[in-house]
Amino acid sequence: MRRRGPLTLAFIAGVAMIIQFFSPHPILRTVYTEALNWYRIISAFTFMLGLISLMRSHITKVTHKRAGWGYSIVTIVSFIVMTILGFTYGTGAGTPFDKMYEYVYAPLGATVFSLLAFYLASASFRAFRARNIDATILLVVAIIIMLGRVPVGSFIRWGRFSLPGLAEWIMAYPNMAAQRGLLIGIALGAICMSLKIILGIERSYLGRGG
């Protein structure tokens, strides 16, 4: 029962979602809306599960004074402060919560992602050593796209053709077509996996045990 029950629930939920897609009946619309709300409520609790796990890990680190426990205090305190600011002042423009978002959360996020520019550059230097025709195509196209999107690229011209124009054409046609082929392949794979979940063939998400 500990396995068969959840598998039956997955089957019913999956089939119900497929059926509702093909019918505009108001009852099925309501079922769809409610099912989505259930999904969001469960997602909220799943987030809470992750939060509990994160906090438990950091609190354990602090209480046992493990290496880097001081940084764990930073995580715990910043989480508590951000949450209290939200509950106390709300999220309107100019509130402390909004300031924390604008001057701490957003800059840190943008900086962490911009840091990847440096690592991508060094990784590409190693990966792009054109050893064969595949790597050469990758290298040439990446350079065209990068140069085509910076001001200096517009100075590179051959008659009525320009590098930004070539980059634009690659993005619009060959790249789009290759991505489309991938997209169709991914979709077929995802549909097969979904069918396996609904039919109870794929059950690794249930974990081990009885």
């Binding site: 930073v74 995580t75 910043s78 402060v81 919560f97 701490v104 996020g109």
Partner: peptide
């Protein structure tokens, strides 16, 4: 670590 804490709180 500050980023982790603030993003979870947000």
């Amino acid at each position: 670590h500050l980023y982790i804490g603030v993003s979870v709180g947000y």
